[in-house]
Amino acid sequence: MSRAEEEVANQEKKTLGFWIYLMTDCVLFAALFATFAVLRGNTAGGPSGLEIFDLPFVLVETMLLLTSSFTIGMALLGSVRGYHKQTIFWLIATFALGVAFLSMELYEFNMLVAEGNSWQQSGFLSAYFTLVGAHGLHIAVGLLWMAVLLIRLVHFKFRKTDINRLALLGLFWHFLDVVWIFIFTIVYLVGGMA
């Protein structure tokens, strides 16, 4: 195998490895969803989802995240076609949307704690904070990754390795979007509607 062929093979390994990592993450979230489902009704005298969820607020969060999935898709297309400026623009847009989403989530958490509904209140709230928080933690890691990648893309003028990394980041970001749709449905819609 020549060096060039070997590099292609190496990239294939990374892509497969990353897909498998995503699947293990899927199992991780599945376990968190399962615990949430078990503890959903265990409010122990505290509030239920119906009393604390603000659905329009969460809908805005959802829209931000869905839009960011679109923008990172644009960044990905741009990077493959060699449109450097557009790629950077769409990546920054994605980053901003991600930060906005995360800020809203933290604001929501903060409000809940301030109202006395912290994770120490009940099994339901423990499961809620952990499941939604685990997703938020993933988003934070994604944002850190995006920031490092942005710096590298600008600094090294779109090396092949960085474009490959962007493709993996895209996968990660879409995956988090899918997880969020499940959170939105199972946690907020099912729990927040009478």
Binding site: L39, N42, A44, Q121, S122, G123, F124, S126, F129
Partner: peptide, 18 residues
């Protein structure tokens, strides 16, 4: 660990843990 360090109630026998 969350139960033990942050006082959550996943596996406690009170406050809705299981």
């Amino acid at each position: 660990s969350l139960d033990r360090t942050l006082g959550m109630h996943f596996f406690t026998s009170m406050a809705g843990g299981n």
